[in-house]
Design a protein around this nucleic acid. Structure first.
Lengths: 238, 238
DNA sequence: CAGGAAATTTGATTTTAATCACAGATTAAG
DNA sequence: CTTAATCTGTGATTAAAATCAAATTTCCTG
């Protein structure tokens, strides 16, 4: 057990998990180290909810390993996935800034290792390093752009367009280019994909089958997709 | 013509249109005045596009009078409205921050009076008044929350829920409470409402008619709606 | 305030995806 | 490696909203 703590701290001090976060990227090494020392580590098993909707959250959370999803539930009980977080992403900063409860829950999609910073440490660092507010502004701005794009995507009538956009997004983030095309390990099940784009599991299946018939993609098991014709997806997408 | 300029400047110096902007609200009067002096005024007729999508935009724009909409166009040529701006709202700050082209166009819904600040002035003020970065962060954070809610809304299966949410939002912003209910002057036509929630004009009509039959709302001409039973809308909404 | 333009409502039909039901495939655990 | 549990794909049916096509209402201009 002691070895676990050592390993975690070592990971942070060596790799400086803070270093992965764009918001902190302009800080000098000493500052990063000083942040790293205050970081609280937490391991979360796949499927666990580590931030609950409607509960006051006083930590900035960094995904050090694994993936997680942020989601809300609609009136009819269906899940709407808002964000997929991967290694290096951080979350919860807005709750600290606005001192509000988390508006959605965050659930581990795989086993996840978290690094967390208390509200106190976070605010202290903003004060000590005024230059990072500009970084935070940038980061929020990019997130805004992403959401605007997502809204446009969800407003689309055509389901092909919506699925294509999602696949292209995942390809960009998780894809590996090979001769045959781009191999993408999907962070979500079909059900998850459905929640992400706001349709049903069955419709996702049908449209993916159709794309496969047209030789645009190829399913490899449940978790992997090979994009054979990226161009075709781009044309559907816009 | 001279009188126009005087009037505009007077409006800014007297009322300090900058004062209406939450982001600047913490600044001392002198700072506000100094900003106001640099403001460029522009009058825009209803229907005119004053910020074009894909064009570099180097002004922070404040809506001093009137209303405007920000929209993008989907692959199939349909319009998706992202924001409705009213008096006191500001826009374009993100383009300045990220030095990017406007990702959407902004069009006047009514005759509009704008106050604009150049990128240069804007950046200078951020530097001189570091405290406003925190205000900007707050403002962006609130906008993020709004978009997240909008995504959840668009992911909803039920159209009642989507329309109800939109009506409640407009009521909150533009509504006037009376004995009979809340009178709301809609900023958008039925067509606009449709673009806002991602459905067709006809479906909007039908659902509004249905809500009227159920005595939940009442249409008064094309621009006004009386919400008789806010509670019912809230129940649809969530 | 009349008249025409624009926006809206309503009806009929078609298209699309949701729903329901189940078979088949993949994954994970022992 | 087997087996159960879970996830996924497909067919049939239903429900819902899009589309197409008027008819009506509202709004604005002269």
């Amino acid at each position: 057990m002691n070895s676990h703590c050592d390993r975690a701290c070592q990971r942070c001090l060596d790799n400086l998990c803070t270093h992965k976060i764009p918001v902190f990227s302009t800080l000098p090494y000493e500052a990063l180290e000083s942040i790293a020392r205050r970081i609280i580590h937490q391991d979360v098993p796949a499927g666990a909810v580590f931030i609950e909707a409607g509960v006051k959250n006083d930590r900035l959370t960094i995904i050090s390993e694994g993936q997680a999803k942020a989601c809300r539930y609609t009136a009819d009980g269906r899940e709407q996935i808002l964000y997929i977080y991967s290694e290096g992403d951080f979350l919860g900063e807005r709750d600290l800034i606005l001192a509000q409860e988390s508006p959605y829950q965050v659930e581990a999609l795989t086993d996840v290792k978290l690094c967390q910073l208390t509200a106190e440490s976070f605010h202290q660092f903003i004060q000590e390093h005024a230059e990072i507010s500009m970084q935070i502004i940038h980061s929020l701005s990019r997130r805004l752009s992403r959401l605007e794009q997502m809204i446009q995507n969800m407003g689309q009538r055509s389901i092909e367009a919506r699925i294509s956009t999602a696949l292209l997004d995942f390809a960009e983030q998780y894809g590996v280019q090979q001769k045959e095309g781009i191999y993408v390990r999907l962070p979500l099940s079909r059900e998850g994909l459905a929640s992400y784009i706001g349709i049903t599991r069955e419709t996702v299946s049908r449209k993916l089958s159709q794309l496969e018939t047209e030789n645009i993609i190829q399913s490899i098991g449940h978790k992997m997709i090979l994009i054979r014709n990226q161009q075709a997806l781009k044309e559907f997408s816009d």
